[in-house]
Design a protein around this nucleic acid. Structure first.
Lengths: 137, 137
DNA sequence: CCGGATCCTAATCGATACTG
DNA sequence: CAGTATCGATTAGGATCCGG
């Protein structure tokens, strides 16, 4: 396959004593690893958004999931929720400082994805070809 | 709450036309957003590992989940799987070049987590205090 | 417009038992 | 040792109806 990575005997880039401690990586992933959080954050990175705006900008999300998503983000201090007591009601969501710093991380994710999606797609096709009828999805 | 982030009207760090396109972020998260992948990758970042070694280094993972996890990572070209036809059987897992590059991304995750975990934990406690009996978990 | 409450389905994961 | 197979529990997520 000629991936030819330069024999790294020990280059523990991540550096935490053991996978046991999990570095806190799981915390981040529990926060943004779900189906919708990053998409909402990405949209909010473009500016203040109302509930409906967020829903329209995130095709496929249900009302329920959007509610849950923004609630969790609010709880973690990643977005603020501002209710304007008008009629009809108007609620605005906005990234906090932490939320904005998160967008940089999201950018890193997007960059990595863009950089490797082709290679990975190819590897996947090859694997699927060599393993016919493997239910690994 | 005094988060006081500097009024960012439009600083689209992420830059993809719309959350609609999702940048491919979802691809990454579908790959490493699960419960165990990153932990396995972190352990493999420290060197070549056998199946049992991975399982011992990842407390709580079941045999089944480890199998599924390494299979998916192999399929995506993130790890290689080498079977030594000895007895008892011996299978070694090793990061590919893509896998190693992923390690850097994981480090970014770990760094961000370390940098914000306290603030987030505090925000969460405050939210929970202000919203008694909210089943948001 | 915003979102809570309810019901239901599908995916995920863990435990256990068994095989080469 | 390194898996596969099966089952059950838990969870995430979608659809829908309703209320402020």
């Amino acid at each position: 396959m000629s991936v030819g990575h330069t024999a790294v005997t020990t280059e523990p880039v991540v550096r935490c004593g053991d996978a046991t401690e999990d570095c806190g990586i799981r915390e981040v992933l529990d926060r943004i690893g779900d189906k919708w959080s990053v998409l909402v954050v990405v949209e909010l990175a473009r500016g203040v958004r109302r509930f409906r705006q967020l829903q329209r900008a995130t095709p496929g999300i249900s009302q329920r999931m959007l509610t849950l998503t923004v609630r969790r983000l609010e709880r973690d201090g990643i977005v603020t929720r501002t209710v304007h007591p008008t009629v009809p009601p108007q609620v605005e969501y906005e990234l906090t400082a932490v939320g904005h710093s998160l967008t940089h991380l999201v950018k890193a994710l997007a960059d990595w994805s863009a950089e490797h999606r082709d290679v990975i797609a190819r590897a996947r096709r090859e694997w699927d070809a060599e393993h016919p009828g493997a239910g690994i999805r």
